[in-house]
Structure formats: C-alpha cells, structure tokens
Design a protein around this nucleic acid. Structure first.
Length: 214
DNA sequence: ATCCCGAGGG
DNA sequence: CCCTCTGGAT
C-alpha cells in the first residue's frame, strides 16, 4: 500500500502542472453546451480522438437537440458506428435530445440532478459539463484520474466518489478549477495505464508508485 | 457483476 | 493476441 501524498507534495505537484501548462484544455471537440454534453456522453470507453473524428462530421449538421432528432437514431448510428458502444449511445442521445426539448426548453441544465436524469448521463458526464460549461467546482473522475490518483497518491480512493472527494479535499483551492484537465492529460500521456512513462514525469520524485523503474 | 463494442497501441 | 479508452444502465 502506498501512502497518500502529503499536502505539501500535492501543492508542489500542481505548481508544476500549472507551470508546464497554465491553461489546460480538454481535447473533446464541441461547438456549444449541447455538443459538449453529447461529446462527453459519446466518450464513454472510447478515445477522444475517435470521438472527435466522428463528431467532426456529426456536429455541423446536428448541433442542437432539434437537429439531432431530425437526424434520427439510424442517421446518428451512421456517424458514430466507429465508436464503441454505439447502439446504446445513439439511443441515449436521441432520447436525451427529446427530453431536453420537452423538459428543459432545449437548453442543457446546470444542476447535477437534472443532468443525471438524462439517459446516458451519469455522475462523471454531469461533472464534466458542470465544470467545463457552467464553471462550477465539480471534479469528474474518469479512468485516467482514478488511476493517477491511486497510483501516485495524489488522490487515493476505493471508488470514483472517494477519489472525487479526495480531489476536492486535498487539492488546494487555487488549483481546483484546472485540476481535472491537468490530471487527465497527465494520466493520458504520462501516467499511462500499461507502461507509465515515469522517465518523462514531472512529479516522479513526489510519486508514491512503487515500480518507477520501467 | 455484467453487458455494451469499435479502434488503436504494444 | 490482449489491453485500454474522459461510463452508464440493468
């Protein structure tokens, strides 16, 4: 078992993240709140590259709930067939579009409860929209952040909610806003699932991971 | 705990 | 070939 990083170590880690990338941004392409919500929903168990490739053709013709309904489930499937889990995702996006029109005036809601009431939108997707679109202090924990948080000791937790709390409790306030993207980018490109690139890691001297030598 | 499910990396 | 990818619903 690794020990959690100390608060001083966490502060230093984020100081370095910020120095390296002052304004980190997500890599999921979108045009507005609706396309952000759809892009995040499509990204479940898929790479952002794969999602971006599909949405590059999809979003220009379906950037509102109305246009998405006009496209229809079969039309949507044609666009997202190359993304994993496409049948469920297509069904959810169509149903979600209908609900946005009928219950939310065609707008993307700004509360977690409303967001999570939408089909295909769970805690993680809701947190991303709350953070990225509405600027609220929500910490979305995805596969990268869960792995990085536990492996390094930055934000340990048995499940995603525990890691979410760990980020909220342990990351200094001044870094909360960008913590999501800093951790995601670090997890995606450096602290990779299979062979973490510790030699290229900014915080390897703070990291609690045992096998730093591969 | 299981299913969904294609693409890319190693 | 096997593992992983900004999960969610049952």
């Amino acid at each position: 078992m690794l020990r959690p990083m100390t608060y001083q170590e966490i502060d230093e880690a984020f100081r370095r993240f910020r120095a390296a990338e002052p304004e980190p941004k997500g890599e999921l392409h979108h045009l507005n709140a609706f396309t952000l919500l759809v892009a995040v929903a499509l990204s479940a168990q898929a790479t952002d590259k794969g999602v971006n490739r599909a949405t590059a053709a999809l979003f220009p013709i379906a950037d509102t709930p109305e246009k998405m309904l006009a496209l229809g489930e079969e039309g949507l499937i044609e666009h997202i067939r190359t993304i994993g889990l496409y049948r469920n995702k297509a069904k959810n996006v169509i149903r979600l579009s209908r609900i946005l029109i009928d219950e939310f005036g065609g707008e993307v809601p700004s509360s977690r409860e409303a967001l999570q009431s939408l089909p295909g939108v769970g805690r993680k997707t809701a947190n991303v929209v709350l953070n990225m679109w509405w600027g609220l202090p929500a910490q979305a924990v995805d596969t990268h952040i869960f792995r990085l948080g536990n492996r390094s000791g930055l934000a340990p937790g048995k499940d995603v909610v525990a890691v979410e709390r760990a980020v909220e409790d342990r990351v200094p306030a001044e870094y909360q806003r960008h913590a999501h993207h800093w951790m995601i980018l670090h997890g995606r490109y450096i602290c990779t699932a299979r062979r973490p690139r510790c030699a290229d890691c900014l915080i390897s001297d703070l990291c609690q991971f045992e096998e730093k030598t591969i």
